[in-house]
Amino acid sequence: MLTIKNLHANIGDNKILQGLDLTLEAGKVHVIMGPNGAGKSTLSKAIVGHYDVEVTEGSIDYKGKDIVKLPAEERALEGIFMSFQNPTEIPGVNNAYFLRTALNAKLKHEGKEELNAAEFLRVMREKLSSLEMKTDMLSRSLNEGFSGGEKKRNEILQMLILKPDVIILDEIDSGLDIDALKAVAEGINSMQDGKRTFLVITHYRRLLDYLTPDYIHVLKNGKILKTAGVELVDKLEEEGYDWIKAE
């Protein structure tokens, strides 16, 4: 579904990713773990075309073409979604209005009919209650004054509405209480349809217990150094990352 080959990426003068290879398979849940500062967020940013990250070498093939040069909004419209580790606040921009604009941009891109306000609200109500979010979250400004957990739920809400094909979740579990964690995990699971790909970045197994990960990848020294099944999580929790060396 998405194939990364020999990816080299810098932030400023720092070489963060150095020849990273990774293939995301359709219908699978990929997990990336690794030490702080290893470049996990940098990898997700490289995939979505973030302005901080400069790709100097390598390719990211998606839907039959290299997307490295594609503007961020086009990657998004083509179905790549990333939940932000720290979602930004935008004062005065109504959350519902933002969601509807984003959804309609996507529908338009797909040549589908845009949703009218009533249809949109119906869809929203349903998703909100599944995430146990209060309806007033819709009328508030985008992320403004949201608590950490509310911001994360709002990211998942956007995922549910936009129905992307590649879903990158960067530490979606950080700062969530137990109930929120469950609600978020359920949201993620509800999106599994055997076609969508998930790239879940996390430090802890507690989220993974609610999901069905297919692969655990370890990112270290600018590369994916190890790929294994879910059993790797236990070992990492016990022993950390020191023992992982280039194979």
Partner: peptide, 15 residues
């Protein structure tokens, strides 16, 4: 901020 613009663009909204 670039961050605000990027957030919206990542959701498919043109710059």
């Amino acid at each position: 901020s670039d961050e605000q613009l990027f957030y919206l663009r990542q959701r498919g909204i043109s710059e």
